[in-house]
Amino acid sequence: MAVRFVQPVGAQPPNGAIVRDVREALMVSRNTNGKLVRRPLSPHLQVYKPQITTAMSILHRITGVALAAGSLLMVCWLVSAANSPEAYYGVRDFTVSWLGRLLMFGWTAALVYHLCNGLRHLAWDAGFGFEKGIYKTTGIVVLAATAVGTILIWLVVLLGGAG
């Protein structure tokens, strides 16, 4: 049986946008009724079963963006310490307020997660950990390490007189 891909001549994507890219032209096809449709792009998040690997992947990105925002706090701390004792104590008072504590806790958890999962990513980049099931195990290890690491840091903060 000869199968030939018939490119709709002069076809436009259903939303009316002009095809400017050959990759986009290939994404246009006909459904069984002969109607021109835009093919769905992968990944189709709505049809995938939620998995620990995908959830952790998106969490890596979310924590990364959150840490970028959190880096502002680190710069504030440095600038205040460079300016005057009054400015420094102002920032320090904020970090021990309930809002400061909440932000710092979120920042710590995001940092520990991004660090642990980042090491997992580096192992993948080096070619390790791709065996079936291993990536799930390492994912659970990362989540456990994040919980333990974050709790340990905050035990030191709250019990060690660091507060």
Binding site: A81, P85, V157, G160, G161, A162, G163
Partner: peptide, 11 residues
């Protein structure tokens, strides 16, 4: 964590 709530001079 070691610095904790250090004074300005300590930082």
């Amino acid at each position: 964590l070691s610095l904790g709530s250090a004074s300005h001079e300590a930082v």
